[in-house]
Design a protein around this nucleic acid. Sequence first.
DNA 1: CAAATATACATTTGATTCTTATGTATTCCA
DNA 2: TGGAATACATAAGAATCAAATGTATATTTG
Lengths: 119, 119
Amino acid sequence: MYICSMYSSELIKGTLKTIVLNLLKDNQKMYGYEISQKVKSMTDDKIQITEGALYPTLHALEKQGDVITEKVYIGKRVRKYYTLTDQGKVTRTERVNEFSDFMKTMKFLLDLDIATPNV
Amino acid sequence: MYICSMYSSELIKGTLKTIVLNLLKDNQKMYGYEISQKVKSMTDDKIQITEGALYPTLHALEKQGDVITEKVYIGKRVRKYYTLTDQGKVTRTERVNEFSDFMKTMKFLLDLDIATPNV
DNA sequence: CAAATATACATTTGATTCTTATGTATTCCA
DNA sequence: TGGAATACATAAGAATCAAATGTATATTTG
């Protein structure tokens, strides 16, 4: 699987955990490959998560207690399902809010906003 | 100068060049310290660019031909002014458009958008 | 007027996060 | 039956940033 994003890779940096956490909130239980395909289809191939980025991210989320895993065998092939913990739900909200706020700041900084009237 | 951003540092990654290029477009000619202060004040201290990030970024922009520099002495103290080249203006537009598009994609991905009616 | 703070440049080290590449194995389909 | 898709994983290297450190001048304030 050879993957590359249409965006300068730098932009994606720092948003991967947020994306994963948010998908897990909406879909309750997902496995790695499913997450990568979901992001790809939802963004019209604009964001394509590499495996080298995704799996370490998932492992990190598990290590820090934001997700728990469950192995399921489909025939002889294993799938590792990820589910948000209560802590993960909190982290998700924090991350999404932070990103949302960051976008507002950047919009202003890059003149992408129409001036809002004061008072 | 001790600096830290209120955002997870990862989020800023990849946006620094865009921010600098855009400021130079609006202000024509700026020096490093001025840029860091401008970003700080424009974002209500939310984004504070560290020197260890800013100066290498400015040097990189110069190396790749997006800015030219000019040294000015204020008394005995030197200031290095940065100005966008024609190429830098193109780069700025590309970067800002790319970021703008990325924000739209992320907004959709993070459910920050109200569903738009089809047709 | 001395000390602290602000101005102004710069580099080095280390952390983090990603891409690229590689590895293993199963399943499906043409 | 052989390539593509599914499904996991890790290692090496690149890029970008924060933190720390260094040098020096100018201004402010007690």
